[in-house]
């Protein structure tokens, strides 16, 4: 019987230890890196497997407890999909028929309003973001995307570089301070001015005016284009020059330069 080759054993042990270490360290970091969205995605998948009736699992919000359900306003990843084949978006059909619908517009405008303090405020981001780099924003918002009914609007001010300067995630960092959430502090009576909805028409059939400021909204197609929100979509996306027919408001766009000189008088509001 030969003596076992010690050096081979030693090597094997070292390899085993190395594998063990690599796994545990990377596992640790994977754990550290797990963000809310990943956790939520994982939970969603789990539930998907548990649920015999898979048609249900698509539209019913997957929330663990009842109390949480009432509070959740965030369902960005509710229909989480990782099958890339299903994520392909069809090319926009510029000639598809669109029927303007007051009710749908109403819904769309109210939906927009939930993410803005007032009309013209930068919308908050309804999903977690990379806290340090804005580069990832552009992956979806650079050209805009529509994936399974969720819309990532095309950024309407592409010359801007620092996305998170104005757009902050509504969810905050993935770490939470339990029992001390600052929500109580944030009770606020600010009532923002909301979009008036429709522009005005000079007469039936005349092109409506633009009812909102166009600053930072220079790309009309990001909301009104074929990838936009139902209710706001234009019926004629194939036309290229929007302001040819739709007039913006000089007041809202701060182009009333005679107003820039404020009359040298005391303010009208009195302090009494």
């Amino acid at each position: 019987m030969s003596v076992p080759d010690f050096s081979t054993h030693k090597k094997a042990i070292w390899i085993a230890i190395a594998i063990l270490l690599t796994t545990s360290v990377s596992g640790f970091f994977m754990g550290l890196r797990q963000t809310n969205s990943e956790a939520r995605a994982a939970a969603a998948e789990e539930e998907h497997h548990d649920n015999a009736d898979s048609t249900l699992s698509h539209d019913v919000p997957r929330i663990v407890d009842y109390r949480g359900l009432a509070k959740t306003n965030y369902k960005a990843n509710a229909s989480w999909e990782n099958n890339l084949g299903k994520l392909k978006q069809p090319a926009a059909d510029l000639y598809a028929e669109i029927f303007p619908d007051d009710a749908a517009r109403d819904v769309a405008i109210r939906e927009r309003a939930t993410r803005r303090a007032y009309d013209g405020a930068p919308p908050v981001v309804p999903h977690p973001v990379d806290q340090i780099s804005p580069a990832n924003c552009m992956a979806c918002h650079g050209e805009g995307a529509q994936i399974k009914g969720r819309i990532a609007s095309k950024m309407s001010h592409p010359f801007m570089q620092n996305c998170t300067q104005c757009h902050v995630p509504v969810t905050g960092p993935e770490i939470k301070l339990r029992g001390q959430a600052g929500e109580a502090l944030a009770l606020n009576d600010f009532i923002g001015f909301m979009s008036p909805g429709k522009g005005t028409r000079a007469y039936e059939g005349a092109p409506p005016t633009i009812p909102h400021p166009t600053s930072m909204r220079s790309d009309c197609m990001s909301c009104h284009g074929p990838n936009g929100v139902a209710g706001l979509k234009t019926s004629h996306p194939y036309r290229q020059s929007c302001t040819q027919c739709h007039a913006p408001s000089a007041e809202l766009d701060q182009r009333l330069f005679e107003h820039s000189v404020f009359p040298p008088k005391a303010p009208e509001v009195s302090g009494k």
Binding site: A121, V124, V168, P169, T171, G172, P173, L177, G182, E183
Partner: peptide, 8 residues
């Protein structure tokens, strides 16, 4: 909006 983004 600010508190929501950075609550603590």
């Amino acid at each position: 909006q600010l508190n929501g983004s950075m609550p603590h």
